[in-house]
Amino acid sequence: MKGVVFREFIDMVESSFSPEIADSIIELSDLSTGGAYTSVGTYDHREIIQLVSRLSERTGIAVPDLLRAFGNHLLGRFAALYPSHFIGRNSTFDFLSILDNKIHVEVKKLYPDAELPVFDHSSPDPNVMAFVYRSKRPFADLAEGLIRGCIAYFNENIDMQREDYPCEEGAHTRFMLRKMVNV
């Protein structure tokens, strides 16, 4: 997992909770890095799982809720750090539809070693999108937070339903997004 994700998580903990809590979750975790992450480095995804688990223990907030909050935060940070990915996109559906075939292609150019999740989508109706997330990592809650962050970024009224599918490792989840059209 790319270091930018780790850095953004630590920054979110510092700003949403406190620098002391960020330091304590790093100290309580068994991290090969000691909690030192560079934005361009690649790190074991299990380290972020440890950090989120320690944050949950410290705050009493459930891990899935923390991952969703982090995903929401991360979308906003990605919009600030990588504005070119958002230029010309005018809706959640428009943005989500380009993740695999445009944004991930660009990410792979910058970080050839990146292990990215796979996203499939279909729109049987202009107001409905089925968005499927597959990953070797257990981050469906993070993906949900990113989608919710995207909805907020584009200031849309979209209902989201989630269905998790069994898989041997990681996550396989379908998100059904429906634009709430004013009648």
Rank of each mutant, 00 (worst) to 15 (best):
M1N: 10
K2Y: 05
K2V: 04
F6M: 07
I10K: 01
D11M: 09
D11T: 08
M12R: 09
V13M: 04
S16E: 14
S18T: 08
P19F: 08
P19A: 11
I21H: 07
I21E: 04
I21W: 07
S24T: 15
S24M: 13
S24L: 14
I25M: 03
I26Q: 00
E27W: 05
L28Q: 14
S29T: 03
T33G: 00
G35I: 00
G35W: 00
A36V: 10
Y37R: 00
T38G: 09
V40N: 13
V40H: 12
T42Y: 02
Y43A: 04
H45C: 13
H45V: 14
E47W: 00
E47G: 01
I48L: 09
I48S: 03
I49S: 13
L51T: 00
V52T: 12
V52Q: 08
S53V: 09
R54I: 08
R58N: 14
A62G: 13
A62Y: 09
V63R: 10
P64E: 07
D65M: 11
L67T: 08
L67V: 05
F70C: 05
F70V: 11
F70P: 00
H73Q: 13
H73T: 12
L74M: 12
R77P: 01
A79K: 03
L81G: 04
L81C: 02
I87R: 15
I87S: 15
G88Q: 06
G88W: 08
N90K: 15
S91F: 04
T92D: 04
F93K: 10
D94N: 09
D94I: 08
S97I: 11
S97F: 06
L99R: 07
I103P: 01
E106C: 07
V107F: 03
V107I: 15
K109V: 12
L110F: 13
L110N: 13
A114V: 13
A114K: 03
L116K: 03
P117L: 03
P117T: 05
V118Q: 13
F119Q: 03
F119R: 04
F119D: 05
H121V: 09
S122L: 06
P124M: 02
D125M: 03
N127P: 05
N127D: 14
M129K: 00
M129F: 01
M129A: 02
M129T: 02
V132P: 00
R134P: 00
S135L: 04
K136L: 12
K136Q: 12
K136E: 12
R137M: 11
R137L: 10
F139G: 07
F139T: 04
D141Q: 10
L142Q: 09
A143L: 05
E144C: 10
G145N: 10
L146R: 09
R148W: 11
G149C: 10
G149D: 11
C150Y: 07
I151F: 05
A152F: 12
Y153T: 09
Y153D: 04
F154C: 10
N155Q: 15
N155P: 11
N157F: 06
D159L: 14
P166W: 07
C167P: 02
E168V: 13
E169M: 11
G170C: 02
H172G: 01
H172L: 14
H172W: 09
T173C: 01
T173F: 02
T173Q: 02
F175G: 00
L177M: 04
L177A: 04
L177P: 00
R178C: 13
V181F: 08
N182H: 14
V183E: 15
